[in-house]
Design a protein around this nucleic acid. Sequence first.
DNA 1: TTGACTTATATGTCTAGACATATAATCGTG
DNA 2: CACGATTATATGTCTAGACATATAAGTCAA
Lengths: 242, 242
Amino acid sequence: MSLITDAPDKPTLYKQIRQDIERRILTGEWPPGHRIPFEHQLMVRYGCSRMTVNKALSELAQADLIERRRRAGSFVRRPQHLSAVLKIADIRAEITALGRAYGYELINRRLRAATAADRIRLGVKKAGKVVAIACRHSADGMPFAVEDRLIDLSSVPDAATADFANEPPGSWLLHHVPWTEAEHTISAIVADDRTAAALDIAVGAPCLVIDRYTWRSARTITAVRLLYPGDTHRLVARFKGG
Amino acid sequence: MSLITDAPDKPTLYKQIRQDIERRILTGEWPPGHRIPFEHQLMVRYGCSRMTVNKALSELAQADLIERRRRAGSFVRRPQHLSAVLKIADIRAEITALGRAYGYELINRRLRAATAADRIRLGVKKAGKVVAIACRHSADGMPFAVEDRLIDLSSVPDAATADFANEPPGSWLLHHVPWTEAEHTISAIVADDRTAAALDIAVGAPCLVIDRYTWRSARTITAVRLLYPGDTHRLVARFKGG
DNA sequence: TTGACTTATATGTCTAGACATATAATCGTG
DNA sequence: CACGATTATATGTCTAGACATATAAGTCAA
């Protein structure tokens, strides 16, 4: 579901310098704490101006591979805590990418005044209207995930009239509302009878849960809970690090 | 467990330009596909040289917020698929960060010739030796996670003599072996009797599973499976996007 | 020894140019 | 009209300087 690729680039000088240093760091030749040659030394070694060296080092610093300290120099950072770019794609794109046929089914759609529980879930204080949606995504006709979503109509008025019978709300929102911030929480539960029926798995079978909250400029847009069969579905995050 | 913070920086000119454009993109003032003013126009607007504008735009391009095309200009990119930086910290750091007391207990440590199953798990073909470790992490005396790890001794010879009785293998590896690539797979299972006993939860209770493989320059270092109680533990990924 | 002050220095930012290069737009030609 | 050649232009990279600024290291006094 995710992969960080290094596009092969024309080896301009600053990129060459950057890759050169990166290689030494990744192979361990320059261990954490090692001081990288000063910009002045590097410009002599590579026969270029300081700006060129600076650009290479700046990018390495931006990638957290090195740390730059005024007057002291640049240092190889100690291995970062494991961190991964976890790309959780639009479910339709995810299923299509697997080469399987995507299916969507709206189970329930209700427009209502926000209940107390709704307001807590969306993290809003004022009363207002919400759209509650339950739907199911399938791959090759088999249940893939069930979705339980709440959309704050005060943030997304258009959602009141949107037709979610044919378009999944996730796709609709992605195309209609720019988001600025989001949060995923991943956990595990066992299927209750309703979930089990919807996913066509046994009651008590493990489920992977993704709760996603999306904001736009500190304003809640939507809260969604996705349930996947836990033994067949996997989230994969692949990454590089130092 | 993760958070992308924007450190408040002294507002140098290029950063101001960058944030200015970033704001317009994030608020939707400049929607996806919108062409950003040419560098030449921006240098007039901000009264600076092209290199300054170029630095701002280059960083925005590096962050995938804009796309730059020669002769055509720079354009706001359409919203990326949801992607999050999922920071899976060293467990000790994770527990400490929660303000709880960290505990570690080695359950089992065996040095053996790699079995067929070991070789499959590590993705190596040649015969060799491995260290198999089972251990438990606890927070405030309560089981937090159980770990089942395999270390390839041909990649990490020192692991044969390392003392994992007092130091968790994850911390030891992080400090002794630089890694260049890793992969996480997140899934859910239900606890079997052994897992239930180790985590002090009921048989059949949900567990969050993290399988992590770590490589160094295409060479497998270690494979580890972490089991967390699924209803109490959560992976959180918070992020920004366009 | 400790704390306050000074100094040297590496990085941070910026300029006003230059040439390279990819490509959108235009122009000509069949 | 279609297609290939030409041209204009925005970005990509680079230079040789400049001054700003944080700070490690050295200096000196209490």
